[in-house]
Design a protein around this nucleic acid. Sequence first.
DNA 1: TACATTTAATTGTCTGGCAATTGAAAACGG
DNA 2: CCGTTTTCAATTGCCAGACAATTAAATGTA
Lengths: 247, 247
Amino acid sequence: MRTELNPDAELSAQIAGAIRDCIVAGKLLVDARLPSEAELSETFGVSRPTVREALKRLAAQNLIRTHRGATGGAFVNRVSFDAVQESLVTSSTLLLSMNAIDFETACEARYALERACVALAAERRLPDHLATMRAEIARQATDDLPDTTFCASDVAFHRALIDAACNPILSLHLAGAVQAMQPLMNMITFRARSRQRIVAQHIRIADAIEARDAGRADAALAELAIYTTELGGQVRARRAAPVLREA
Amino acid sequence: MRTELNPDAELSAQIAGAIRDCIVAGKLLVDARLPSEAELSETFGVSRPTVREALKRLAAQNLIRTHRGATGGAFVNRVSFDAVQESLVTSSTLLLSMNAIDFETACEARYALERACVALAAERRLPDHLATMRAEIARQATDDLPDTTFCASDVAFHRALIDAACNPILSLHLAGAVQAMQPLMNMITFRARSRQRIVAQHIRIADAIEARDAGRADAALAELAIYTTELGGQVRARRAAPVLREA
DNA sequence: TACATTTAATTGTCTGGCAATTGAAAACGG
DNA sequence: CCGTTTTCAATTGCCAGACAATTAAATGTA
């Protein structure tokens, strides 16, 4: 357990780092039980509260879980796709909101990534994926949908498209990118006319995927990308010069 | 600061969640100072160690930083691309090592993502990107390179290719996927002949990017993807039936 | 055997305190 | 009045010890 530590850091961070290294290096396998807090505090020569702070750091990264009771303790977590994806989504969302990423950049990244997997999706899509896409399209066609509901459905549609590639690693990255963009999308899909065009493109994409026509799906996605970017530009223009609109 | 909390969870997790919500919701802006530990413990009605555990959770997620001293305290971090990328790499690496992702799936994802940005890279590449790619190619051609060094250079080459797209969000996701795969790549690039072929493809890619020829770059990348997958299959076959080889 | 009770181990939390750090204010000297 | 040094107060980092809550296993009992 004991490894060389990095001075110039807080004790709890050093200890957390040492344990994390053991996990990454495979010295602690999945579901292995760590020594109890009392043992760890003795091993590292620190107090129990300090050990606990270290364990909380690891728990925050989903690397360990803790149970109380006689057979309790801290156990190494199996890193799951869902957990990684969730943390990726929250990180990406904060990244977008804090760093003033312009809409075009985010949009470009999103559609570039999505287009990377339409070929696979067209080849491998299962009935489930198609059903989800159709269901979301139907929901999006409903009148008077709140912005957030429409965009949540948009995200669900695109996630189904992504999942149709049947590659969990692709799903992980793509879902992170798509979902993180939802707040930005909320701002541009408030007009019924815009929504109609988006839904029309969704139908084209779903049809192409159903027909296993990768080329058509890619073309539709490319058009959707252009239209989305255009909408973003319009909203930005309206915000930059609201006076002109009233004149 | 105080928001509704989720019972059925540990106090420190509840408090961490409440503070995180404030940050995500924008109630706490970048570089804002959180109340002191003493104030927080009073606000939430818990002891200081509990507050500290909560803060350590947030610190582990890079959401806050702490300073000691008179003007010290906990401050909201600006979420940086580098920090997100680093955590994405470690998560992805663990994910691959713990979940028995087969080489083909990882490979497929990686090259699908990379091909998603070659068009942009060909269009926007700067002299710096080309220089990095050329330098890494030169290094890869060195004889008797350790596996890890060769693969680190491979990662650097592909990262330069990705960065050439000049889209930080693409770089974030792609670098995560590429770098997380390095341990897997280490296993298949041990033969000089394999390396020569890989380097040859790298040269084709760099040439195409330099000539701003997206089609040729994509084709070269596709070939590299096929060859890499093939290598992975060979290694797996040799491992599955080592007896046959000796006979 | 089946069920209730006790027990031991472990984490969760609290109280209270001291040490280390650090910026700012106060004191001082020119 | 300005610059330097000293002091100080606020804050986090860390510790010792204790008690509560939880949980599975051991134990006792019908």
